[in-house]
């Protein structure tokens, strides 16, 4: 299997006034095509910083980062925006759907920034919604959907560009147990289809759905354990 994501000696230092905070201290991490990886760690561990770097929302202070073959550690803002658009599908804890747009209009949003033709956008958005089982809710606004359904719309939005990686940041943090099971089931399903999924969470039982668990502690990878399930 080829590596989708390769981090080597990644460190990140924040300068807050006179104090320098080292959020990451030399992280090495490789994630292969089709893997389902969970990144866990307590708050303050550097987990969020790692997620921002993985998501190309922030750049590391030192180290190299290859995503889908491209070196993304030193790109400018415009190029990073393009990388996010093409290679990463985000799923957030807060869903982050635009309340004034219908489900399919939310899903097509990433395609708007690639300049995709309008008809193609609609087709691809509807097919992504069908993959998450919400084809019949395409014209509903987020306010008319349950929490679990909203998160599924968000997952459809993450799928629509066919990204190299789906990056889910605490996707079940705002959901009840039924919806949690629903969303995790969907992630399992997508993994089974061969998609690369990186899941960031602080809940152990959620993390255990993954093939591999990466523990972050004090800005470093502490242990990498392979979950009990089939690898």
């Amino acid at each position: 299997m080829s590596a989708v994501l390769q981090l080597a000696a990644i460190s990140k230092t924040y300068a807050t006034g006179a104090v320098e905070v080292q959020a990451l201290r030399g992280v090495d991490l490789t994630i292969d095509q089709g893997e389902f990886v969970a990144i866990v760690g307590p708050s303050g561990s550097g987990k969020s910083t790692l997620m921002h770097i993985l998501g190309c929302l922030d750049t590391p202070t030192a180290g190299t980062f290859h995503l889908a073959g491209d070196d993304v550690a030193s790109l400018d803002e415009d190029r990073l925006a393009d990388v996010r658009n093409r290679h990463i599908g985000f799923v957030f804890q807060q869903f982050n759907l635009l309340p004034y747009l219908s489900a399919w209009r939310n899903v097509e949003l990433p395609l708007v920034y690639t300049g995709t033709d309008r008809h193609e956008r609609r087709e691809r958005a509807l097919s992504a919604l069908a993959q998450v089982g919400l084809a019949d809710r395409a014209d509903h606004k987020p306010g008319e959907l349950s929490g679990g359904q909203q998160q599924r719309v968000a997952i459809a939005r993450a799928l629509v560009t066919e990204p190299a990686m789906i990056l889910a940041d605490e996707p079940t943090g705002n959901l009840d147990s039924v919806s949690t099971a629903d969303v995790l089931g969907l992630l399992d399903h997508l993994h089974a289809q061969g998609r690369t999924i990186v899941l960031i969470t602080h809940e152990q039982d959620v993390a255990e759905r993954a093939e591999r668990i990466v523990q972050i502690y004090d800005g470093q990878v502490r242990t990498e354990e392979v979950a009990g399930a089939v690898a």
């Binding site: 415009d78 393009d82 920034y113 690639t114």
Partner: peptide, 10 residues
């Protein structure tokens, strides 16, 4: 923030 995360350039 969301639009930027989804690939909107400045």
């Amino acid at each position: 923030g969301l639009r930027k995360a989804l690939g909107a350039r400045p």
